[in-house]
Amino acid sequence: MTHYSMAQTINLALDSLLSEDQRTILIGEDIGLNGGVFRVTSQLMEKFGEERVIDSPLAENMIAGLSIGMAMQGLKPIAEFQFLGFIYPALEQIISHVSKMRYRTLSRLSCPIIFRTPYGGGLNAPEHHSESTEGLFAQIPGLRVLTPSTPAKAYSLMRAAFQSNDPVIFLEPTKLYHASKQEITTFNDNININTASIENTGQHLTLISWGPMMVESRKIVSAYREHGIHIELIDLVSLQPIDYDTIINSVLKTRRCVIVSEAANTVGVASEIAYTIQEKLFNHLIAPVKRVNADHHVIPYYKLESMYRPNINKISKVINQVLAWKN
């Protein structure tokens, strides 16, 4: 029985993609000899050579721009940004070209690129290293935004992202890279990038979350189960597009919903989901749909981070409000 961390399973997924498809190229800062600052690309340059695993110059806009040219000449680049907080110079390339290329050329050209990057807090990292700005990308039509929440899902999701031929922002929860290892007997490709996964079924309330916050969400589900309250837990997996079929079917049953994420509170993925649920199930809801996000505030430096991020107490409080709701 072998146990794997998320850093290891992503490494294995990248290894498999480099082996199976000669078009696969990795590009990013420190991803070669050093194996990436989180060791996600460890040993890949040694195995596949410097031409296919590029230790790139330090320029994020360049990484994105080169990936576009490579992709439009038939390669399949998987680019790493060292942290989500440093992806911003590449936004022009991602928004103005990556997301639009297929549409504006009516499928003559496209940008099947995976942009990988760690995101989220919880690591006592320096400033700018703990951002959860996934909503920026979820706002952009033409992109897919995916985020795994376990080592096994990370493996399958990376491979599914590669097969999709659409540009993908692949958000890897920094906190989970080396957190806890998962026992995995067989690696498989049984994930569909269009579908959210129901991790636990229940009839009392739907709890929706993704990425790093799935850790807290799972603990909450177990704790409530002890008290006879059965929460249906949905791991969103894809933040753009959003699998509303799964969400609506679940809330149709539970009639109560709480959405948990680490992003700032306003104008985000959680707000979007809440909007759609009220639109589709207005007469059906017993309680308002509630979000538990971080405050609408820049992420504070780490001594105050725990005040800012949602935690089990904050989430439970909101769940209790929703469960006890009386009109």
């Binding site: 190229i25 031409e51 296919r52 806009n61 360049m62 994105a64 721009g65 080169l66 990936s67 576009i68 040219g69 490579m70 992709a71 439009m72 000449q73 038939g74 390669l75 680049p77 022009e92 390339q93 103005s96 070209h97």
Partner: peptide, 17 residues
């Protein structure tokens, strides 16, 4: 200027192919 990088990416593709 954004497309200058695309051309460099294409040239890289030619080189490794």
């Amino acid at each position: 200027a954004t497309h200058i990088l695309h051309a460099a990416g294409a040239a890289y593709a030619f080189k490794i192919k």
